[in-house]
Amino acid sequence: MMPNNYNSFNEIDNQLKILSLQKQIYKEHIKLNIKSSKNSLSAINIKSEFKSALQEQVLTFIINNLIKRFK
């Protein structure tokens, strides 16, 4: 970050207000990301992901066994 040259206290105040607003925006982004992460890690989502992964593994096992039997 390059140092700024200010000509008045008003310019400094304006820059401080801008920085304060940017800080608030960043905080809100973090809160939103945390909330989104909590929702994606809920028990229902984890259960459904596990169930689909298990189904995929079972289907792969069955298909592989069927292929071996018909060879």
Results as ranks from 00 to 15, higher is better:
M1Y: 00
M1H: 06
M1T: 00
M2R: 03
M2I: 06
M2W: 03
M2D: 02
M2G: 03
M2A: 05
P3M: 00
P3E: 01
P3G: 00
N4E: 04
N4L: 02
N5Q: 04
N5D: 04
N5G: 00
N5K: 05
Y6F: 02
N7R: 03
N7D: 05
F9C: 04
F9M: 09
F9G: 06
N10K: 15
E11S: 02
I12P: 05
I12Q: 04
D13M: 07
D13R: 13
D13K: 09
N14Y: 08
N14P: 00
Q15A: 07
Q15H: 14
Q15I: 02
L16P: 11
L16V: 01
K17N: 08
K17L: 09
K17W: 06
I18M: 04
I18E: 10
I18T: 13
I18Q: 15
I18F: 15
I18H: 13
L19M: 13
S20P: 04
L21K: 05
Q22L: 11
Q22G: 08
Q22N: 08
Q22A: 09
Q22P: 02
K23C: 10
K23N: 15
K23A: 12
Q24W: 10
Q24R: 15
Q24G: 06
I25A: 12
Y26E: 11
K27C: 15
E28R: 11
E28I: 05
E28F: 10
H29L: 13
I30Q: 10
L32H: 08
I34H: 13
I34W: 15
I34A: 11
K35N: 08
K35P: 05
S36W: 07
S36K: 10
S37H: 13
K38N: 04
N39T: 07
S40G: 04
S40F: 02
L41K: 07
L41W: 13
S42A: 01
S42R: 09
S42V: 01
S42M: 05
A43D: 09
I44N: 13
I44K: 14
I44F: 12
I44Y: 15
N45Y: 09
N45L: 09
N45S: 08
N45K: 13
N45V: 10
I46M: 03
I46T: 08
I46Q: 14
I46C: 06
I46H: 07
K47A: 07
S48Y: 15
S48D: 11
S48V: 13
S48C: 09
E49V: 05
E49I: 10
E49D: 10
F50E: 12
F50D: 11
F50C: 08
K51H: 11
S52T: 03
S52R: 11
S52K: 14
A53Y: 09
A53V: 02
L54T: 06
L54H: 12
L54K: 15
Q55T: 03
E56G: 04
Q57M: 07
Q57A: 14
V58I: 14
L59N: 09
L59H: 14
L59A: 08
L59W: 10
L59P: 01
T60S: 12
T60Y: 11
F61R: 14
I62L: 06
I63C: 02
N64E: 09
N65S: 07
N65Q: 06
N65M: 01
N65T: 04
L66P: 00
L66M: 12
L66N: 06
L66I: 03
I67T: 00
I67G: 02
I67K: 01
I67R: 05
I67E: 10
K68S: 12
K68A: 00
F70M: 01
F70D: 02
